[in-house]
C-alpha cells in the first residue's frame, strides 16, 4: 500500500494531474476546438456544422472591412499607448528614484488607477469626458476641455489613449523603479565626474542597464493594449462609427452578437498569430540590447 502510494506514477498523477486536467480542459481543448471551428460555418446553436476549408479566412482578409479597421485601430492604439505610457512611466520612475520626501505617497497615487478594472475606469471616464471636462471647459475656457470628447473619431481615439495611459503608466513605473534601483550609484557618480551631461548619463548608462525592465514593460504594455476590450467596451462601446472597436471586441461581436461562431474563431486564430508574432519580435529586439553587468 505504502509503496504504491509513493510510486513515481502515483506522485506524477497527484502532483501534476490536477493542474494538467484544468489546463487541458480550459486551454488546450478550446484552443484545438477553435482551430477546428475556424474552418467551419458553426453558428453556435445548430448541430449541423459544415467544413468550409479556408473560406472564413478568405472572407476575413478580403471581405470584412470592419475586421480590417478594428485591426488598424488596435495597431495605432497599441503603438500610441505603449510609447506614451512607457515614456511617462519611466519619467515618473526616474524622478521618484530621487530622494523626494513624498516619494512613497506619490508612488501609491500614480499606481492607484491600475488596481481598478478597465470596465469601471471606462465608466468613470465616460463621466469625466462628457460632464467633468465640459464643466472645466465652461469655467476655464481652455480649448482642450471644450473639445467634443468621445463624440468624434479623433477625440474618442485620444480619449481611450488618455485613459489607458492613466491606467498603465503606474504599473510600468513600478517595474522601472525596480530596474533603476539596480543601477549602481558609483557608476553614475563616475560618469558625472567625467563630465557627462544628465542626458548622456541617461542615454549611455542608465538606459542600457535597465534594458531588462524595458523588455518587460514593452512586453506587458503591448499585450495589454493589443488585447484591450473592457475599456473600449465601457468608454466608447467601440464608437463613434466603430472607430474605436478593438480586435478583441470585433471577435466578441462576431461570435456572440452576430452568432457567426465559425467566423469568430477564425478571427480569434488570426488574432493569436498576430499577438504572438508582435510580442516575439519585440522581445527578441529588446533582449539583444540587454547588457550583462
Amino acid at each position: 500500500m505504502r509503496r504504491w502510494s509513493t510510486s513515481q506514477l502515483m506522485q506524477q498523477t497527484v502532483f501534476v494531474g490536477p493542474a494538467l486536467f484544468a489546463y487541458a480542459i480550459v486551454m488546450v481543448l478550446p484552443f484545438l476546438l477553435g482551430l477546428y471551428y475556424s474552418f467551419t460555418n458553426w453558428n453556435g446553436v445548430s448541430s449541423q456544422i459544415d467544413w468550409l476549408g479556408l473560406k472564413n479566412y478568405v472572407t476575413i482578409l478580403t471581405d470584412d472591412p470592419d475586421f480590417g479597421s478594428s485591426l488598424w485601430f488596435t495597431a495605432r492604439f497599441t503603438f500610441t499607448v505603449v510609447l506614451i505610457s512607457n515614456l511617462l512611466g519611466f519619467l515618473i520612475a526616474y524622478l521618484l528614484s530621487k530622494p523626494m520626501k513624498s516619494r512613497n505617497m506619490l508612488r501609491t497615487i500614480f499606481f492607484m488607477p491600475n488596481v481598478l478594472g478597465g470596465l469601471l475606469l471606462g465608466f468613470i471616464w465616460r463621466f469625466i469626458f462628457t460632464e467633468g471636462f465640459a464643466a472645466i471647459g465652461e469655467s476655464t475656457h481652455i480649448g482642450f476641455f471644450e473639445l467634443p470628447w468621445l463624440s468624434t473619431e479623433a477625440s474618442a481615439f485620444w480619449g481611450i489613449v488618455l485613459v489607458s495611459v492613466w491606467q498603465g503608466a503606474g504599473y510600468l513605473m513600478v517595474i522601472y523603479i525596480a530596474g533603476l534601483t539596480n543601477v549602481p550609484s558609483d557608476m553614475l557618480e563616475a560618469a558625472a565626474i567625467d563630465g557627462a551631461s544628465g542626458f548622456q548619463i541617461l542615454r549611455n548608462i542608465v538606459l542600457p542597464l535597465i534594458m531588462p525592465a524595458v523588455t518587460i514593460c514593452l512586453f506587458l504594455s503591448i499585450s495589454w493594449t493589443f488585447k484591450s476590450f473592457d475599456l473600449n467596451f465601457s468608454l466608447t462601446q467601440g464608437g463613434p462609427f466603430k472607430s474605436t472597436e478593438s480586435v478583441a471586441m470585433n471577435i466578441y461581436y462576431e461570435a456572440f452578437k452576430n452568432n457567426r461562431y465559425g467566423l469568430g474563431t477564425a478571427k480569434a486564430v488570426i488574432f493569436f498569430i498576430v499577438v504572438t508574432v508582435i510580442t516575439m519580435i519585440q522581445v527578441s529586439i529588446t533582449k539583444k540590447r540587454e547588457v550583462e553587468m
Binding site: 480550459v26 481543448l29 484552443f31 493589443f226 466578441y252 493569436f272
Partner: peptide, 10 residues
C-alpha cells in the same frame, strides 16, 4: 501567450 479572446468562443 494565448490571448483569452482566442479561446473564449469554444
Amino acid at each position: 501567450v494565448v490571448p483569452f479572446q482566442t479561446i473564449m468562443i469554444p
